[in-house]
Amino acid sequence: LKKGSQVEALFSYEATQPEDLEFQEGDIILVLSKVNEEWLEGECKGKVGIFPKVFVEDC
C-alpha cells in the first residue's frame, strides 16, 4: 500500500489507545504511511491515527 492510496474498512475498528484511528465498516481511509508490516497510519473523517492492516482492503 502506497502513501496516498485509499483503503476500505472491512470491519469496524474501536480505538483502544489515543493514537488509534477509529472507523466503521465501509469507511474509506486515506493511507498516510506504513508503520510496520501489520499497522498503517491513515486519515478518516478528519482524524489521523494508526490501525491494523487486516481491517482494510484496497479500494
Rank of each mutant, 00 (worst) to 15 (best):
K34H: 13
A9C: 14
Q17W: 02
C44R: 08
K47Q: 01
E14I: 08
V35Q: 08
G49F: 06
C44T: 06
V54A: 15
E43T: 10
P18A: 09
S33W: 08
A15Q: 00
K34Y: 04
I28S: 13
V48M: 00
I29V: 01
V54R: 15
V35C: 06
G49S: 05
V48T: 12
F23Y: 05
Y13I: 06
E43N: 02
L40H: 02
W39K: 03
K3D: 07
F55V: 14
F23A: 08
D27Q: 10
D20Q: 13
E37N: 14
E8N: 15
G4E: 01
S33G: 14
L32M: 05
V54Q: 14
I50Y: 10
A9M: 05
N36F: 06
F51D: 03
F11T: 08
E19H: 11
E19L: 12
S5H: 09
A15Y: 03
E57K: 14
A9W: 07
P18W: 02
I28V: 09
V54P: 06
P18G: 04
V48R: 15
A9L: 06
K2S: 08
F51G: 07
V7Y: 14
L30C: 11
C59W: 15
N36T: 01
L30K: 15
F55P: 11
Q17S: 15
K47T: 09
S5R: 11
Q24D: 14
E43A: 12
G4D: 12
Q17M: 09
N36R: 00
Q17Y: 11
E38P: 05
A15D: 02
F51V: 08
V54D: 13
K45C: 10
E25H: 15
G26V: 07
L30T: 15
Y13G: 10
C59Y: 10
G42A: 11
F51H: 10
I28G: 09
T16F: 04
K45P: 00
E8L: 15
F11Q: 02
C44I: 02
D27P: 01
L10M: 13
L40Y: 15
T16E: 07
S12F: 07
G46C: 06
E14S: 11
L30F: 11
P18H: 05
L10P: 05
E37H: 08
E14M: 06
I28F: 06
C44Q: 02
G4W: 01
Y13L: 04
E38Y: 09
V35M: 11
D58Q: 11
G46I: 04
A15N: 01
Y13M: 14
W39N: 10
K2C: 10
E14V: 12
D27I: 10
G26T: 01
I50P: 13
E37W: 09
K47G: 05
A9F: 10
E14A: 13
E25N: 12
T16H: 03
V7E: 00
V31P: 12
D58G: 15
S33D: 15
Q17F: 01
G26S: 06
A15T: 00
G4F: 08
Y13N: 06
K45Y: 05
V35D: 04
E22M: 01
K45I: 00
E22T: 09
P52R: 00
L30E: 13
V56G: 02
K34W: 07
V54M: 14
A9P: 13
F11A: 15
I29A: 05
E41S: 09
K53T: 02
D20V: 04
Q17G: 15
A9T: 06
C59H: 08
L10T: 05
E8M: 15
A15V: 01
D58W: 05
Q6Y: 15
G4L: 01
A15L: 01
P52L: 11
G46N: 14
D27E: 00
V48Q: 09
K2M: 04
D27K: 08
K47F: 09
K53F: 01
T16V: 08
F11I: 02
F23I: 07
K2I: 03
K45R: 12
D58N: 11
V56D: 07
G26I: 01
E37M: 05
F51M: 12
E14Y: 10
W39C: 07
W39G: 07
L10V: 04
G26D: 03
E43W: 07
K34E: 15
V7A: 03
